[in-house]
Nucleic acid binder design. Structure first.
Length: 585
RNA sequence: GCGCCCGUAGCUCAGUUGGAUAGAGCAUCAGGCUUCGAACCUGAGGGUCGGGAGUUCGAAUCUCUCCGGGCGCGCCA
C-alpha cells in the first residue's frame, strides 16, 4: 500500500514538472508513512514540505497542486492537505477489508516476509563461561538473542545460532580446582577455600558427584595440598595463590587426574546451562567449543593471516597485533611472553572461522561491559581482509532485580547471586521473557519480581495473553449457544466493520508486518512487545464497547472474523517473543 | 583522562531515515459488570523532553558544549 501511494505521488509530481516544479523530482525524496494519528487518515506524505523551497511555493499551495494531480485509484477514498502542508491519504473501505482477509488467509504466516531472503547470518549469544550457572543478566541476553533470531527468520534471513563455549583457559582450571577442594572437604579434609575460587553451591554439587563416582581415589591429605603455598588474599595475592593450588593439584593427581575432574566439572556446568536454556525455550544450532577450535589449528591459521598482512610484531617477548591501526585504542597482545595465548587469539580465530563458514553477517549479542571488545575483533577481521561492517555487536545492558521496590544485591563470585533458573521458577517463563524484552536492550532493566509475579492489571504479560484467551472464550460461548462461525459469510460482509473501534483494530492489524520488519532490521524486539500491548488495547476497548455474538448473522460473522484476526496476530507476535498464547487463563 | 551507553510525567519506560497538539503502564482521583471472562474498559489531573547554543519551513530526534548517572580502558576472560 505504501509503495502504491508513493507511486501515485510520483506520477502527480511528474505531471507538475515544468509548470509548478522547475525540475524532475528524485523518487527517493518521496516517502509515504503511516499516519500516527487516526484523524490524519491512514497514510501521510511530507513531500510538499520538502519541495517547497526548491519550487519556491508555499508548502500548502504545493500540496494542493499535488493532490489535484493525483491519478485516481480504487484503494484511495480521498487525499487532503493538512497542517503545514502534509498530504493525508484516506483509504477506501475495501482496502481495510483486504488486511483482515490477508490475516485470515495467511494465518501463522501473516507478518512474515522474505525481504532479506537468503542472507546468511550467524547469531552468537549468551556464550557464558561454563564456570557457573546462568544468572539473570545472561537470561536477558538469551531472551534477546532467541527473539532476534525469530525476528530475523521471519524476515527471510537464514539464521544460525551459536553458543561459544570458553572451555579452555584459566577460568576452567579455577573451576576444576574449586571442585577438587570441595571434594576434599567432602572426604573429610579441612582446608581453606581460595579467595579467587568459585564458591557457589553448585560447586558442592559437582564435588558430591565426583565423590559418588570416584570415592576417595582423588583424595590427598590437606597438609600435602597446602604445604609451601604462597599466602592467599588479603595478606597475599589471590591470583598467585589460586595458580599455585592449580599447580599443586596437577602434581598430586597428574595431568590425567586433573583432566578427569575438569571434564566432570565442565560436563556438569554445560549440562546445567543447556537444560536451563532449553527450558527457557532458547535453542542453539551449535555449541562451539573453544578447545575444538584450538585443536583444529584455527588459531594458528588466523595468526598466519595476520602475520602475512604484516600486522603482528614482537615486543618484550610477547606477540602483538597492531590493533591501533585498525580502529582500536591500542595494540593488543595475542601470545603472552610465556607462550600462552590470550583469550583474544582464539576469539579472532573464531570470528574468522564464522566468515570462512560462509556467513555474510556476524551478529554478537554481548553484555554491555564487553563494548570495548568490539573494536578489536572488528580490527582483526579487517586486518585479515574481511569487511569490517560484517560484524555487528548488540550490547545488552545490565539487569537489576527488585523485590517490592528493594534492590537485590548481586555479585559474581559470591554465592548470593540470583540464577536464571531461580528467576524462572519464581515468575514463570512467559513473564520472564516478556519482562526481559519489554525494554530497549540499550537501556538498563529494572526487573521487579513482585510485579512479574502479580496476576493483576499491573502485569503486562496477562494483558496481552488475556486478549488471546478472550477470543477463545468467545468462540466457546458461540459453540455453547449452538452457533457456528462462517468465514465465507464474514468475508462477504467486511463492510459491516465500520465502527470506530473496529477500524482501530483493523489499523493495528495492518501495522504488524511493518513492526516485525522494523524490529528485525533495528534489532529491537521490544518494539514488538509495545505493539502487542497496543493491539491488545485496541481489542479490549472494542470488546468492552461491542457485543460480538449478535442475532444479525452477517454482522456477527464479520465481528468474529476480526476477533479471530486479532487473536491470530497476538499469537504470531507472542510466538516470536517465545511467550505462550493460552486459550484460557 | 580517553571511549561507549543513558538522562522524556511522581515511578518504570516508548517515541530509529528530523514532521502535525511529545505517548503508554503504574500510582492518584472520578466512573462502568443481571449482558460473549472486570486479568477489562471510560474519563481527569500530571511535562523547561537534564541545561545552553547551533543547523532549518520544522528538533525529544542531527551537531557542539556543559551538568548528572552507568560501563569499559590487563601479557584477566
Amino acid at each position: 500500500m505504501k509503495s502504491e501511494l508513493e507511486r501515485l505521488v510520483a506520477d502527480a509530481l511528474k505531471t507538475l514538472t515544468g509548470s509548478v516544479l522547475p525540475d524532475p523530482v528524485d523518487p527517493a525524496w518521496i516517502s509515504v508513512e503511516r499516519s500516527r494519528d487516526a484523524s490524519h487518515g491512514d497514510y501521510t506524505c511530507n513531500i510538499a514540505l520538502r519541495l517547497a523551497k526548491l519550487a519556491r511555493r508555499a508548502p500548502r499551495e504545493l500540496a494542493g497542486a499535488v493532490v489535484a494531480a493525483l491519478p485516481a485509484s480504487p484503494d484511495l477514498a480521498r487525499a487532503e492537505v493538512a497542517g503545514a502542508g502534509f498530504i493525508n491519504f484516506h483509504l477506501a473501505r475495501a482496502a481495510h477489508g483486504a488486511v483482515l482477509r490477508r490475516v485470515l488467509a495467511e494465518r501463522e504466516r501473516f507478518g512474515r516476509s522474505d525481504a532479506a531472503r537468503g542472507q546468511r547470518v550467524i547469531l552468537e549469544f549468551v556464550s557464558a563461561n561454563p564456570t557457573g550457572p546462568l544468572h539473570v543478566g545472561h537470561g536477558r541476553q538469551a531472551a534477546y538473542g532467541a527473539t532476534l533470531a525469530n525476528l530475523l527468520r521471519a524476515t527471510g534471513h537464514s539464521v544460525h545460532c551459536e553458543y561459544y563455549i570458553n572451555d579452555a583457559g584459566r577460568q576452567m582450571d579455577i573451576l576444576t580446582a574449586s571442585t577438587w577442594l570441595r571434594y576434599l572437604e567432602h572426604c573429610g579434609e579441612t582446608l581453606p577455600f581460595p579467595a579467587n575460587g568459585y564458591r557457589g553451591d553448585y560447586v558442592h554439587a559437582i564435588a558430591r558427584q565426583l565423590y559418588e563416582r570416584r570415592g576417595r581415589e582423588l583424595q590427598h591429605p590437606a597438609a600435602a595440598v597446602l604445604s609451601d603455598l604462597p599466602a592467599d588474599a588479603p595478606a597475599g595475592d589471590k591470583e598467585q595463590y589460586i595458580d599455585a593450588v592449580i599447580q599443586r593439584m596437577r602434581s598430586l593427581l597428574g595431568a590425567g587426574g586433573f583432566d578427569q575432574v575438569l571434564e566432570l566439572s565442565l560436563a556438569a556446568m554445560l549440562g546445567d546451562i543447556r537444560d536451563d536454556l532449553a527450558a527457557f525455550g532458547v535453542e542453539f544450532d551449535r555449541w562451539y567449543s573453544e578447545r575444538e577450535l584450538a585443536r583444529s589449528g584455527a588459531v594458528e591459521h588466523a595468526l598466519e593471516k595476520l602475520a602475512a598482512a604484516g600486522t603482528l610484531y614482537r615486543k618484550e617477548g610477547a606477540l602483538w597485533f597492531r590493533a591501533s591501526q585498525f580502529g582500536d585504542d591500542e595494540d593488543r597482545v595475542l601470545v603472552r611472553a610465556n607462550g600462552q595465548n590470550t583469550y583474544f587469539a582464539p576469539d579472532i580465530a573464531y570470528h574468522l572461522q564464522k566468515r570462512e563458514r560462509g556467513f555474510e553477517r556476524l551478529i554478537d549479542v554481548l553484555g554491555a561491559d564487553h563494548h570495548g571488545y568490539v573494536a578489536r575483533v572488528r580490527g582483526a577481521l579487517v586486518a585479515m581482509g574481511e569487511p569490517g561492517d560484517c560484524l555487528e555487536a548488540c550490547l545488552v545492558q545490565f539487569v537489576s532485580l527488585f523485590r517490592g521496590g528493594e534492590k537485590i544485591p548481586m555479585g559474581k563470585r559470591e554465592a548470593q547471586f540470583v540464577t536464571l533458573r531461580q528467576l524462572r521458577a519464581e515468575v514463570g517463563n512467559d513473564a520472564c521473557r516478556l519482562f526481559y524484552l519489554m525494554r530497549s536492550h540499550d537501556q538498563h532493566l529494572d526487573f521487579d519480581l513482585e510485579l512479574a509475579k502479580s496476576r493483576s492489571n499491573e502485569n503486562p504479560v496477562y494483558y496481552v495473553q488475556y486478549a488471546h484467551a478472550r477470543v477463545a472464550s468467545v468462540m466457546k460461548q458461540l459453540d455453547a449457544r449452538a452457533l457456528r462461525y462462517d468465514q465465507a459469510v464474514a468475508l462477504e460482509h467486511m463492510e459491516r466493520l465500520d465502527g470506530a473501534h473496529e477500524q482501530a483494530a483493523v489499523r493495528e492489524l495492518a501495522r504488524y508486518p511493518d513492526i516485525v520488519a522494523q524490529a528485525a532490521a533495528a534489532r529491537t524486539p521490544h518494539a514488538l512487545v509495545h505493539y502487542l500491548r497496543d493491539l491488545a488495547h485496541a481489542f479490549h476497548t472494542w470488546y468492552n464497547a461491542a457485543t460480538f455474538i449478535v442475532d444479525d448473522a452477517p454482522l456477527r460473522n464479520a465481528r468474529l472474523a476480526l476477533a479471530l484476526g486479532v487473536q491470530q496476530v497476538v499469537r504470531n507476535g507472542l510466538a516470536l517473543l517465545g511467550v505462550s498464547a493460552p486459550e484460557s487463563m
